[in-house]
């Protein structure tokens, strides 16, 4: 069998994948009490820690694994000011080959349609086989960006990926439906995939890795570099008018006291209910 025949038989062995991963930096709010700021439209951001959006972290991890298996490159792309560099450096530390930040003060990063337009314009400036991003973001949870990018670029897409494999130059995705059922779809490449949390185990970033990444270059692009005018990204499609604590009727009875007192009260409660 000649070389060309082998390549046709097992193309996975030589296929190199260039992957763009779109990442967002979000405030870590998991164990924090949130306050609305004076505008009434945003949260009070002082004192909050920022990190990579959890879903994007999984998208990056999935991209790194695909690259490690098939060869190629991973480019992390984010939109924002210099604060986004921290997240991009984290991506570099984890193993991304390149990092690009679209930094432009004219951009409204709170509108997912603006974000999708800008990211797709950035993708047009690069060569890629796959674009990966998280299903949604920890902060706004819109779940719009990924498929919207696919539409801008006129590419096939799959959302909610729990597994991604490359077979014969095509990409096979297991999509997570309701109740743990998965749907298997096959896409031609290039394609856009949104990644569900838990797709693979996340790797930890070493301190050394972060330190090394500090020296790496982050390419900064403006709207002009992307060939976008400020009118094109001017008006948001959707916007938050008001942010407020949910007005819910709570039935909860809080149990207070020292841990011992709390334990005693709970145990009494369970005994009364016949649960102990």
């Amino acid at each position: 069998m000649g070389l060309s025949a082998r390549i046709v038989a097992v193309p996975g062995l030589w296929l190199a994948l260039d992957i763009i991963v779109c990442v967002k930096y979000v405030p870590d709010v998991s164990s924090t009490e949130l306050k609305v700021d004076s505008s009434g439209r945003d949260i009070e951001r002082r004192g909050l820690n920022y990190d990579i959006n959890e879903w994007d972290d999984y998208a990056l991890e999935a991209a790194l694994m695909l690259r490690d298996k098939h060869g190629g490159s991973v480019t992390a792309v984010s939109i924002g000011g210099e604060e986004a560099d921290r997240v991009l450096r984290r991506c570099l530390a984890k193993g991304a080959d390149k990092a690009v930040r679209i930094g432009d003060t004219r951009l409204n990063v709170n509108d997912p349609f603006t974000v999708a337009k800008v990211l797709s314009a950035a993708a047009r400036k690069m060569s890629f086989d796959l674009i990966l991003t998280g299903v949604q973001a920890n902060d706004d949870g819109y779940a719009i960006t990924g498929p919207a990018i696919a539409q801008h670029l006129n590419l096939p897409h799959a959302t909610l990926a729990k597994k991604i494999e490359i077979v014969d130059g095509r990409v096979i995705v297991n999509r997570e439906l309701e109740g743990g059922v998965e749907e298997i779809v096959e896409l031609d490449m290039p394609a856009v995939i949104t990644v569900q949390s838990g797709i693979v185990e996340l790797r930890y970033v070493s301190v050394l890795g972060i330190r090394m990444a500090m020296r790496r270059e982050i390419k900064v692009m403006s709207l002009d570099d992307l060939g976008l005018s400020s009118e094109e990204v001017g008006e948001p499609w959707i916007r938050v008018e008001e942010l407020y604590a949910p007005r819910v009727e709570r039935r909860v009875e809080f149990v207070g006291g020292s841990p011992e007192e709390v334990a005693t009260k709970i145990v009494e409660l369970l005994k009364r209910r016949g649960l102990l």
Binding site: D140, E241, L243
Partner: peptide
């Protein structure tokens, strides 16, 4: 109306 920040806050969102 939709939730944001993992359900900690509600948002009133308008469409253009």
């Amino acid at each position: 109306t939709r939730q944001m920040y993992g359900g900690k806050l509600n948002a009133r969102v308008s469409a253009r």
